[in-house]
Design a protein around this nucleic acid. Sequence first.
DNA 1: CGATTAGTTGATGACTATCAAACGCTGTGG
DNA 2: CCACAGCGTTTGATAGTCATCAACTAATCG
Lengths: 291, 291
Amino acid sequence: MLRSLPLTETAPGFEHASVQDNWVRSNCHPTDRPNAESVVALGADRREFSPFGPLVAKIRNFVELSSEDTEILERLGRNPRTYEAEQNLIQEGSGTGFVCLVVSGLAYRYKMLPCGHRQILGYLIPGDICDLGFMLLDRADYSVAVVVQSRILKLPIARLAEVVSANPNVRLALDLAAHLDHVILREWLLNVGQRKAHQKLSHFVCEIAERLQLLGESSDDGSFDFPFSQSMLADTIGTTPVHVNRILQRLRQEGLITLSRRRLRIVDKQRLVALASFEGDYLRLREHRSL
Amino acid sequence: MLRSLPLTETAPGFEHASVQDNWVRSNCHPTDRPNAESVVALGADRREFSPFGPLVAKIRNFVELSSEDTEILERLGRNPRTYEAEQNLIQEGSGTGFVCLVVSGLAYRYKMLPCGHRQILGYLIPGDICDLGFMLLDRADYSVAVVVQSRILKLPIARLAEVVSANPNVRLALDLAAHLDHVILREWLLNVGQRKAHQKLSHFVCEIAERLQLLGESSDDGSFDFPFSQSMLADTIGTTPVHVNRILQRLRQEGLITLSRRRLRIVDKQRLVALASFEGDYLRLREHRSL
DNA sequence: CGATTAGTTGATGACTATCAAACGCTGTGG
DNA sequence: CCACAGCGTTTGATAGTCATCAACTAATCG
């Protein structure tokens, strides 16, 4: 780190020197006080509400939905089914005839390589729909599975297509939701392709934190459910579980995060965000077109 | 490579041992006969046709378009503008009011990191549209630029929206085209996240080759324009230019490809495909829904 | 409680990044 | 036509990141 540097300018990647230059720096309290409260399934507290609650809440972030619109949605399905952790919802290459709406819990998209490596393509939190692209091409190019026990509502594509073509406002809403997925995916490619491993992981933590917060799934002290195994994290950011383990330890030692019992708290958001060069704006759809 | 291996099974990633186990193996002719013919701008031979020729050709791969449909498209614009290499078409964060259709040449999407690193998100060959998502959210979350001199037609979003909502068949066609972009993007994330650098590059070569072939832009001997600098290739697969250079040399030495004067020929497709674990099917949209 | 899974640690080496310098094309101007 | 500048490519040396392997510990679950 103290080698001679090119005279022209700061070495690329080290602009935020306070954090990045030598990110093992400040000596914070590595006290990892285990959070007493037990882990609660994401969105489980919405159990008594309509399964479309989280979706409608999300959509309302960017589109006005009339009560008539929401009723149309509600008629698409009423009884979510519960899946246990690790169960597959959709198998790559298969046709399904439905899309999956996550009502509570957590799901993920992934692709496998013949050699057995897995790349996770994204996580679906309550209110997310696996892929509206299935309305166009009923053959998944990836698989979907559940991280923890989750309640999933399967929406028949045929009926969804009817609803959407009869109701432009609903179509706009769903299209925007899908658009957000694509934005996130592009951000992931940037993340996986260009950042260092510790930045990738930090960025992912920031993203999940932000999304859960927008959903109202983080508690007052800023902690939130983080039900990912280190193995999943590795497949998320394109590295190995062992390396993830070491990065997590450094993030803890640095006083950036606290993580235990599958619950994570961002201790120093400012430094974490700087380390990750995280710009949360992409998670909000602003200035979309009205109808 | 000859260390003791776990007794259980083949080490992950080395199933196609003939190529992957030690991919510096077969001794092929490193004769890199420089292709005599000069590089021709992609799609330049279509100059006299409608600017929508490549798009319509692409769409016809998966949807029937009536002549009325194509006429409707044609009315969206007539005079593509020529951009010189490196020029920017769309700047991340800005609103545009139009989408870009590549008539000839080659463009690319990319995102920058504050530290100056660039991740390329995809390439647009003739017939590709930069992003129909702009119809929803007129704020690009990435930039678009041109690789080589290209002719670009800008389609006003407002008029495109009219056309699309009045003509479900055209909407389906464009949605399918956009869907293909998303499929490719997911494949890229898998590529960048999970493969070794030489596999990443091989996979990218296979993808471009396949796409250009579907477009009819590769010549009889299987060679095609490959106008990427090694620096762009590095930003495509998430590595460095120096490393790309060395990978290319190995691919040449192996007799897998030939590359000179920005023209590439796949010499041993079977081995290249095996090395990359490339499955070209994702580039074809089969079994989509009719209307 | 035993069995299984997830997390942790250390040792080692492969892969990849970085730096610096030389080489080769290409286009421009003298 | 040649000299020159500019850019991309090539090469070598070196260091750092990260993957792999193996063994151990901690947590979880029936």
